[in-house]
């Protein structure tokens, strides 16, 4: 029983980690708290939903479209909107992101109505057992493996490529990056694109596992925010540690106290982390 809860928590934690990777990247590099992050996750989810509903495209195939579309959207939003206030205080970019969130949510509501929808794939109910005690839905395991693959791709881009080095350089010392010739505006746009692209991937996986609706974004932003804070900024491992921590405590918490307390548990952890380790579990490391 405990093992089953633990496994559920880890699988959920993987998805939380993927949700938070993009938010953490954008926050760490540009000092923007992207309040619209959950809305981008919602757009990723609906990309997959419509490709499935209209074209019958398998969600694991539409994952690629979701990432590409959201990358392009993120790139554009940064380049032609946020870029104009990037030098202003964090408060201004926060307000702008808030505005973007309201816009996306309402545009989605008007276009698609507030109906709750589900991507009903034929293999959705498949599962397998480990021993006699643990039953695991196959689709969650596949989603978890994808989370790992996408995270490794992120690690690779950031640590082993010229693009990744320019992103890290920009976040570590803005003026020094400009003095070696980094095109900061472009780097910011690509970083925002990568972060929003990761949100798109998270949205696709979310749509396979749970029902979706145009107003799902707010709660996902909060969850991502909690994960980023728990894990700590400035490290790619932060969101992964934070995601697993949140997933596991939530799984045990809802089991003991009931699922109505899910959010209460998340935010209790948030407050505890802020009191005990304000920089997050991995804060300050890199």
């Amino acid at each position: 029983m405990l093992l089953q809860i633990l496994v559920n928590g880890i699988l959920m934690g993987g998805l939380y980690a993927l949700m938070a990777i993009g938010m953490s990247l954008i926050w760490g590099v540009m000092n923007i708290i992207n309040i619209a992050h959950g809305s981008f996750i919602m757009l990723g989810a609906f990309t997959t939903y419509w490709l499935f509903a209209i074209l019958g495209m398998d969600p694991f195939v539409s994952l690629a479209f979701s990432i590409a579309l959201l990358f392009a959207l993120g790139y554009g939003v940064q380049r032609y909107l946020i870029n104009y206030v990037i030098r202003a205080s964090a408060f201004i970019t926060l307000i702008l992101a808030f505005g973007i969130e309201i816009f996306i949510n309402n545009a989605a509501l008007v276009s698609w109505t507030a109906d709750i929808r589900k991507v009903q794939v034929a293999y959705g109910a498949a599962n397998f057992s480990l021993g006699n005690y643990v039953t695991i839905p196959t689709i969650r395991v596949v989603a978890f493996l994808l989370v790992i693959v996408i995270s490794i791709a992120f690690f690779y881009i950031l640590n082993r490529t010229n693009l990744g080095r320019s992103i890290r350089a920009t976040s570590q010392d803005l003026d020094a990056a400009r003095l070696v010739g980094v095109d900061v505006a472009k780097t910011y746009a690509i970083t925002f694109g990568l972060g929003v692209g990761a949100a798109g991937a998270a949205g696709t996986l979310w749509s396979i596992l749970f029902p979706i609706s145009p107003i799902m974004g707010g709660e996902l932003t909060l969850k991502s925010f909690v994960v980023v804070i728990i894990g700590g900024l400035g490290s790619m491992l932060g969101p992964i540690i934070g995601g697993l921590a949140l997933g596991i405590t939530e799984a045990f918490g809802t089991n003991w106290f009931g699922s109505t307390y899910g959010n209460l548990i998340s935010f209790t952890i948030l407050v505890l982390v802020l009191i005990i380790r304000p920089k997050g579990i991995l804060g300050g490391a890199d």
Binding site: R168, A169, Q172, D173, D175, A176, A177, L179, G234, D286
Partner: peptide
């Protein structure tokens, strides 16, 4: 002040 990238 050198301004090296400290995380690299």
């Amino acid at each position: 002040g050198r301004r090296l990238f400290p995380g690299m």
